[in-house]
Design a protein around this nucleic acid. Structure first.
Length: 728
DNA sequence: AATCCCTTTATTTTT
DNA sequence: TAAAGGGATT
């Protein structure tokens, strides 16, 4: 196809001037500062298509990088539809996915065994723990998570244990553990997530001819969400993008919310410094939200300093004011949200899938779930435990990994006594010691200890039958199809049998998940990308580690969506509820003291506000049960940072006589407090419904009604004078 | 070796 | 509150 004859109007027509300028930017170095809802993804995908159709670039020469698999899949799909062909040869993926691919292709140059496996965070934590035990480090002084965090942070900076300063004893121990952990990874033939990037960089540095090959191939590099890149990802880009390559990065400093995970907003400035010819483009027209919502977002984010500066505008309508609801407690907050959802679906024609309830921390979802269930509103919670992270799935995968590589110590430790087969802590400890002293893998050590000496006869028998089991699995699965291999593992390992015997509800769930694993294997075999000469099982295991299986859940039915603010980034909804707008919760108390972290919280609030297209509701509870204690809370400062003229306070349905004063209904029972009323949130008991909590009032005098959420009987409105509620 | 009970602790999350 | 981890018990 001659690029010049191609009619490119479909590429430019759906774009505004700023977007068009970005898409058609001259080859070189571009930085697109794209505000929320300004058509960032569209610009990125049209740019890729533009490169092919206008500059005649081969898809082979394009490398497009995102942060999540979901974003990568979406980008690939959209580019392909713009090109009208499959983007054959184009590399579109996550940083980790692409680095992984490179390491597979060049395992030898990278110093990795052919069938290396990937550790997810949990695997990594277990391994760190084991290394610490072996090194005799006290996990009270050095919490495992902290050590893990330290190692990952250093890897994200691109630094190995050997390059680190050890000024004080504490750091020295951390560095030592880092080194010991890395050697454990090396001997087991496994890599963790940050290692994928780091190893890739090291491979390129050690093999300039390889780097040169890829530099000549990938003439065009596109990167999404650049504000989320960390140090090693930036290094990686600097390596792969030759000086004269075409680099197109898109980001928004106001949406940088992963600083705590090593993301460095400064990379936006660093990029401009490292490539002085960078053309900076701004996308400031928002197509998503009403003017009210956008103005509110702009005001909010203006409270941050150190911004690159960007101001979003829209030519859309004013829209509704932002509603702010002060709830008594979290149940009342949930009740309010669910009531609004009910009213808007019934009276204004909204669908359930138009609503999102966003919150700062996952624990907040529970109250909403209860309220939604109580009102028979279908919903879906995003986040939480992902498919491939479930214990039963990981057990099954660990068997597969062990069959693939007997020296994978982490997997061996995981399943040596799962299901229980009489190999207890002491036995495992003996194997571990043997492995450590002889410098061999656990597998080899396990084979050794079955010999004379050491273990009791019973333990030795158990261990050797485990060894036989794994060898037997290997023999049986050889030559089988992927789903059959999974099936074999489930049956022969006893994983399935143990769950069937248990027979509980939970066990049935797990069995279903295991069945789903077989289907996942089948799907992967049919559709998955099994590159080059990689054995399917290796590819499948890598897939399980790199894609936690977010797609699993039940779509289809219209659902209200519940998720954290973090997972809402990149999404949009007609109606958004931002719940728990309270000091201490949001901004979170752990991020309140440091100015930098507080600003990140504010960016998170900004992300939340800009998710809304039409309506935005903020709510905060005056009293919230936190860790089992009732806490009295203040509204979040972020609420106060919105212009008052754009917000309206929503009143509860009971009468309010003065500022903050609640007129209490007269209760029939004379035996409680002085004025005979109940306090909101007070515990009461009813003859028939049992105990409950007072949620709200309506009216006063003898006709006053009181809303009580009963622990077992649900929420009810009662006429106070007849209900004969007792304080308790 | 498995079970039970007590203490501790308590963001955000992708890969 | 509730989950998870550690220590003691069976």
């Amino acid at each position: 196809m001659d690029a010049l004859d191609d009619d490119i109007s479909d590429l430019l027509a759906p774009l505004n001037d700023a977007q068009r300028e970005a898409v058609g930017a001259p080859l070189g170095h571009a930085l697109v500062l794209a505000g929320a809802g300004s058509g960032k993804t569209r610009v990125l995908t049209h740019r890729a298509a533009w490169l092919v159709r206008v500059h005649g670039a081969s898809p082979w020469s394009i490398l497009a990088v995102t942060f999540t698999n979901k974003a990568a899949a979406e980008m690939r799909g959209r580019i392909e539809s713009l090109l009208g062909i499959s983007g054959g040869g184009m590399w579109v993926g996550t940083f980790h996915g692409i680095a992984h691919r490179l390491l597979r292709l060049h395992a030898e140059e990278a110093g990795l065994p052919k069938g290396f496996q990937i550790l997810d965070s949990e695997d990594q934590r277990r391994l760190v723990k084991r290394v610490m035990r072996d090194a005799g480090v006290d996990d009270k002084r050095y919490p495992v998570r902290q050590v893990q965090g330290y190692i990952n942070a250093r890897k994200d900076e691109g630094r190995r244990a050997g390059e680190l300063d050890t000024d004080d004893a504490y750091t020295a121990t951390l560095v030592e553990l880092y080194g010991a952990y890395d050697s454990a990874c090396r001997s087991a033939g496994v890599v963790d997530f940050p290692e994928l990037l780091l190893r890739c960089c090291e491979m390129w540095r050690a093999h300039p001819e390889l780097l040169d090959h890829y530099r000549r191939r990938f003439r065009h590099v596109l990167i999404d969400e650049f504000q989320d890149t960390n140090g090693i990802q930036y290094d990686w880009l600097r390596l792969i993008a030759a000086e004269d390559a075409d680099v197109f990065v898109v980001g928004d400093d106001d949406q940088s919310i992963y600083g705590w995970r090593g993301a460095r907003v400064e990379n936006l400035q660093r990029y401009q410094r490292d490539y002085p010819d960078t053309q900076v483009l701004r996308l400031e027209q928002n197509y998503r939200s009403t003017r009210t919502i956008l103005d509110a977002a702009n005001h909010l984010i203006a409270h941050n300093s150190d911004r690159l500066g960007k101001s979003l505008w829209t030519d859309g309508g004013q829209g509704h004011p932002i509603s702010v609801y002060a709830a008594f407690n979290e149940q009342d907050e949930a009740r309010f949200v669910v009531e609004r959802i009910r009213a808007m679906t019934e009276e204004e024609g909204y669908s359930r899938s138009d609503f999102a309830i966003l919150y700062r921390s996952n624990a907040q979802s529970r109250t909403f779930e209860e309220a939604l269930i109580g009102n028979r509103v279908t919903y879906r919670v995003y986040g939480g435990l992902r498919f491939f992270e479930r214990a039963e799935i990981k057990d099954a995968l660990a068997y597969l990994r062990l069959v693939d590589n007997r020296h994978d110590d982490a997997s061996l430790e995981r399943v040596i006594n799962t299901p229980a087969r009489g190999i207890g802590a002491r036995t495992v400890e003996a194997i571990r010691t043997a492995a450590r002293t002889q410098g061999i893998s656990l597998w080899e050590a396990a084979r050794g200890v079955t010999g004379p000496g050491g273990l009791s006869a019973r333990a030795a028998r158990s261990v050797s039958s485990f060894i036989e089991l794994v060898d037997d699995l290997a023999a049986r699965t050889a030559g089988q199809s992927l789903p059959d291999q999974v099936e074999t593992v489930l049956d022969v390992s006893g994983l399935r049998g143990a769950l069937e015997k248990e027979g509980s509800e939970r066990a049935r769930d797990r069995l279903e998940n295991l069945d789903e694993l077989i289907s996942a294997a089948r799907t992967f075999e049919q559709e998955g990308e099994i590159a080059e000469d990689m054995p399917p099982i290796t590819a499948f295991l890598a897939h399980a580690a790199l894609e936690a299986g977010e797609g699993q859940g039940d779509d289809g039915e219209a659902c209200v969506q519940l998720m954290t603010l973090h997972s809402a980034k990149g999404l949009e909804f007609r109606v958004v509820f931002l719940a728990g707008m309270e000091e201490g919760l949001f901004p979170h108390r752990m991020s309140m003291d440091e100015p930098g972290r507080l600003e990140e919280e504010r960016r998170l609030a900004y992300v939340g506000v800009t998710r809304a297209r039409e309506r935005l509701f903020l709510s905060h509870a005056e009293r919230r049960r936190l860790h089992g204690r009732d806490e009295y809370t203040l509204p979040s400062r972020f609420v106060g940072e919105l212009p008052p003229e754009l917000t309206e306070m929503v009143r509860a349905r009971f009468s309010v006589t003065g500022p903050g004063a609640v007129q209490r209904p007269v209760a029939a029972s004379a035996d409680d407090d002085a004025d005979g009323g109940f306090d909101l949130g007070q515990r009461v008991s009813h003859r028939k419904f049992g105990e409950g909590t007072v949620l709200s009032y309506e009216g006063s005098g003898p006709g006053a009604r009181v809303q009580v959420h009963f622990d077992t009987a649900g929420t009810k409105w009662l006429v106070a004078s007849f209900a004969n509620l007792q304080a308790c």
